[in-house]
């Protein structure tokens, strides 16, 4: 059996997830992973987990954003590794380096503009139809999360404040 090696910046990923190093590529997690089960290019021999961990630049692969953090891999791993946490760290790196899908940058922009990930205009159209009171932007809350974004170093797309 081949031992899974992290080709790309192995030390950086392992520093955050020491448990990943003991993955022995048994594919147990892949049998339950919705990505390996349903995405055509993946199979048990060449699973999502394997491809991602063995890629030269896993953070540049759009597929890392397919992980929905359902944690089926965490439940089933016989070695008690935490692949979900590793994927979240890879997503973070992907976002910071500008490789994340556009929708993620748009979500961040929308959140920082109105405090919610759906536009208030769209939300209110649906609410009117259901006979519900419209919602309004809470300026103070939006101001507060913008401060949090700045202080935590949340990166924005170029051209955004």
């Amino acid at each position: 059996m081949k031992v899974l090696r992290l080709k790309f910046e192995k030390n950086e990923i392992i520093k955050k997830n020491t448990a990943v190093e003991i993955c022995f590529k048994c594919s147990t997690c892949s049998k339950f992973c919705p990505i390996t089960q349903n995405v055509n290019k993946y199979n048990l021999e060449d699973s999502f987990v394997t491809q991602l961990f063995e890629a030269e630049k896993p953070e540049a692969l759009n597929d890392v954003w397919m992980c929905c953090a359902c944690e089926k891999c965490v439940i089933t791993c016989p070695q008690d590794t935490n692949p979900t946490e590793a994927f979240t760290n890879l997503k973070e790196k992907s976002y910071q380096e500008g490789h994340a899908p556009n929708i993620v940058y748009r979500l961040v922009d929308q959140l920082l503009q109105e405090g919610t990930v759906y536009s208030i205009k769209f939300t209110n159209t649906a609410r009117k139809r259901a006979g519900l009171q419209e919602i309004a932007k809470n300026e103070k809350s939006v101001c507060e999360i913008n401060i949090l974004a700045e202080k935590t170093g949340l990166k924005r797309r170029e051209g955004q404040k």
Partner: peptide, 8 residues
């Protein structure tokens, strides 16, 4: 899923 991925 996505906003946690942007910055934990």
């Amino acid at each position: 899923i996505r906003l946690q991925g942007a910055s934990q």
